[in-house]
Design a protein around this nucleic acid. Structure first.
Lengths: 149, 149
DNA sequence: CTCCAATAGTACGATATCAAACTAAATAAT
DNA sequence: ATTATTTAGTTTGATATCGTACTATTGGAG
């Protein structure tokens, strides 16, 4: 394969990733209240899986959004009583975000609705396409993250 | 594999897609003038590859964004003289967006800079991870698109 | 032909995102 | 200990996105 073809393939890869992300986000956001965004929902999921909580900076690194965006997202999640924000006892500049019981409940309900909505897709495709691409995606994500300036 | 594990895997798939999209968009947007977004850049690329042009509605379907967003994006691209917008002679409600020579030039320059920026990633990973996942991504994208209500 | 439903795009208003500049706390340097 | 530097998060202001309601055009039913 010529290097040009490789570049082209990478470009198509990123295009597909962009469109899949768009399709999924749109569908998810249709289930979410108000203007809660797919990323905000992702943050909630991240926190639910980490009961010890994380700082806003850790979260903005994990989701690759500016910390100024994170401030806004966390404020919004807190307004919905889905998370709490406390000052970090180990560093008074910092805070710790944790999911609330309502947050756990809300996440569960949304994921169930999303599963129902995606059921036709899963039964048509089966697990293999996800199964086969996931390790590659993880590898690509890790490398992109590592090489980021 | 239990069905619950399959759901979990799908969830992780979408999470990885979201983060990769975020990483690439951020890097690309750092190269783009003003606040031009990765999606707008994607639209330009789409039009450059289709000299006959497309209508705004075709574009909003291809990129899965609301047509009201497309109006804004196309206006922005037109302001930068990267595309033209003419009324469709076959349907006066409609328009046709086409890339300009400046648009072609601009796209080329940005893609070259992006290639340079991604060179370390590509040389570390090689083409295989992209190669192997692309057909699966395409399949997933097509199915998601088809099953969308 | 007339009317009506469907379709393409836009105006408007609300909210999300993000860059730049800022405040406060922690850490390092002298 | 004092000062300088770095770090965590927020405020501010600008722009992007998108839902709702609208206008204009098309195409079909009668």
């Amino acid at each position: 394969m010529k290097p040009e073809d490789a570049t082209n393939e990478v470009y198509r890869f990123f295009t597909e990733v962009g469109i899949i992300n768009q399709l999924i986000s749109t569908q998810l956001e249709a289930f979410l209240p108000g203007r809660m965004t797919a990323t905000q929902f992702g943050i909630l999921g991240h926190l639910v899986r980490r009961p010890e909580g994380e700082t806003p900076l850790q979260l903005s690194n994990a989701f690759q959004v500016p910390k100024t965006s994170m401030t806004h997202m966390l404020a919004s999640l807190e307004n919905h009583n889905l998370i709490t924000l406390e000052t970090n006892p180990k560093d008074k500049r910092s805070k710790i975000a944790r999911s609330t019981p309502q947050g756990v409940e809300f996440l569960k309900a949304c994921m169930e609705r999303m599963s129902e909505a995606l059921a036709p897709v899963l039964s048509e495709l089966g697990p293999e396409p996800f199964n086969r691409s996931l390790p590659n995606l993880t590898l690509i994500r890790e490398t992109l993250d590592k090489e980021r300036n």
